[in-house]
């Protein structure tokens, strides 16, 4: 595969929600690339827009949400880049891409599986929708996929209902369903938030193995910095609808540039930190997206805030090292109004 050209390129994506109370800029100018075979981790706290970003990519934004600007370029059929924002969300082409080429692993497998159909039925249905195979073949593929994700005795499990499975197995079945059509891009939306640590480790390892085998790219969304450090190759740090910093995972954790990334990494307790010590904190709380501050969204909590600059204009994402980019006026003084 051509590793120079990204598989997915999100360019200045803006997704707004128009509510009675006003407009919420849930995603406001987000850009990042996903290369083939790469695991891109999007990390951020509540209201940062990570979920809306992936929903925009999948074109499953519900009303009153709307993509108002930007491009989502996806490498479709070899080399041509297709702008997903130009497609009708319900069109045949978008439906083919969704599921067959870009698949979603949701946060709550309990909610994602229908309780009245067996998991086998649902996986087979996904296969039949996107592949020209017979029912028997679809069942075979489904069993194969279940085996691949480590479901014990998949011939039997395929006929069970989602509520008969434990949390870990259910999440595995969900991954099997997402993998059923060999997608080029897997989107995992906090897939381990609802499950326990020991099960989470199983799922993360599984995803890592599958990614290596299938050479699929993964966009992994989480608020857990530990998980992101373990799974991602490249990290996108988001805050209140904007990208704060991007870079390879090692640089983000060992040489963070943006004050938010720095502060966040310092403030989390780790198993290796000294017990009883006081952690450096980020003051204040995350503003609600309705009340987003003008200028840099992080300025009210930033210790390096420069009055007159950070609270008046919004920094854009620009390279700061060879590998990292950050949107912060500490690195580029000129204002950039877009």
């Amino acid at each position: 595969m051509n590793n120079q050209q990204p598989l997915l390129s999100v360019r200045n994506l803006k997704t707004y929600f128009s509510l009675d109370e006003g407009q919420v800029k849930a995603v406001d100018g987000v850009s990042f690339d996903v290369n083939p075979g790469q695991v891109v981790g999007i990390v951020g706290e509540s209201g940062c827009g990570k979920s809306v970003t992936i929903k925009s990519i999948l074109r499953i934004i519900q009303k009153p949400g709307k993509i108002v600007d930007g491009q989502i370029l996806f490498r479709h059929n070899g080399d041509s880049m297709l702008d997903l924002t130009q497609l009708n969300a319900q069109s045949e082409q978008m439906r083919q891409i969704r599921g067959a080429e870009i698949a979603l692993i949701p946060q709550e497998p309990m909610a994602a599986f229908s309780p009245v159909h067996t998991i086998g039925n649902q996986i087979e249905e996904a296969i039949l929708l996107h592949q020209p195979v017979s029912k028997q073949q679809a069942r075979k593929i489904a069993i194969e996929r279940l085996r691949e994700v480590g479901v014990p005795s998949p011939e039997r499990r395929i006929d069970s209902y989602s509520w008969e499975l434990s949390g870990g197995l259910r999440q595995r079945a969900m991954i099997a369903m997402a993998l059923s059509c060999n997608p080029k891009l897997l989107i995992a939306d906090e897939p381990t938030t609802a499950i326990d640590v020991t099960t989470q480790a199983q799922v993360l390892n599984l995803l890592r193995d599958l990614q290596a085998q299938h050479d699929a790219a993964i966009i992994f969304i989480t608020h857990d910095l530990g998980v992101i450090a373990q799974i991602a190759d490249f990290v996108v740090v988001m805050y209140l609808g904007r990208v704060m910093e991007t870079g390879p995972v090692d640089d983000i954790f060992h040489n963070p540039q943006h004050p938010y990334t720095k502060a966040l990494l310092k403030s989390i307790p780790t198993v290796t930190s000294e017990s009883g010590s006081r952690l450096p904190t980020i003051e204040g709380a995350i503003p609600h997206p309705f009340n987003r501050p003008a200028g840099c969204p992080f300025y009210p909590r930033c210790i390096e805030m420069m009055p007159g600059t950070c609270n008046t204009s919004t920094p854009s994402l620009q390279p700061v090292t060879d590998t990292q980019s950050a949107s912060c006026f500490l690195y580029h003084k000129q204002t950039d109004d877009e």
Binding site: A201, L204, L225, G226, A229, F253, H254, V271, T272
Partner: peptide
Amino acid sequence: AALMAAVPVADPRVRSKMIPLQGDV
């Protein structure tokens, strides 16, 4: 020990330590 091994450490350089426990609670 298994619980500790399963905790994802917020440091990409200590990746390999994540040893999952088999099965479910």
